[in-house]
Design a binder for these strands. Sequence first.
DNA 1: AAGTAGCT
DNA 2: ACAT
Length: 229
Amino acid sequence: MPPATARSRPVSRITAVFDRGVVKNGLTVMMKLRLRGFELTKPLLDMDGQQRLIECLRPVLRAAPLFSPEVPGGGKMSVRMTSAGAYGWVSDRDGYRYEERHPAGQRWPEIPTEILDIWHATTGLERRPDCCLINYYGEGARMGLHQDKDEADFTYPVVSISLGDDGLLRIGNQTRGGKTDTVWLNSGDVVVMGGDARLTYHGVDRIRFKSSRLLPKGGRINLTLRVVT
DNA sequence: AAGTAGCT
DNA sequence: ACAT
């Protein structure tokens, strides 16, 4: 790997660290940003990498179909989801938790190697994630501000991979309320939520439906990798 | 509330 | 702010 060159400059509340170099398997880091503690790599995945991920997700979605979870208040999420790995994240009227099985009863499929490679390349950790949550945002789907806090050990980061249509990420604070920032996430972007940003509130305000041609039917897929136990 | 409604 |  050629040595990466880096420089920094402040952009409003964003600190941008430009970093070029091959990480793994031909995946190239073009740019790294820091936004309210979130490390954003734009884009980690080139078109071939994005297409490879979509292809490796196909059998996963066949084995573990997307479902629309309910939330404790009785509402229904507009995002459809499923998981891969030893644990999958589920929600129903009783609350949020990790389960070893899909709501239909089968074990979750394995996390594809291509996805694990991105985890290891962006975190540098030997430990594998237990869960790859697969969120599908169709037209009009949103997700309110929340923390990822159903895991046992917050010293492990969360890695989020965007595929398909653009999504507007809102980034808040460690507690509800206060000022927030937004940033558009594009296909191939990877966000690492770690360190002080591990419990930062975040959500997705809206999707630019059919802004990408990666998914012919439109929509955004977000892969969220987490160590659960 | 990882939900929605509604107001500023 | 609401309320399963």
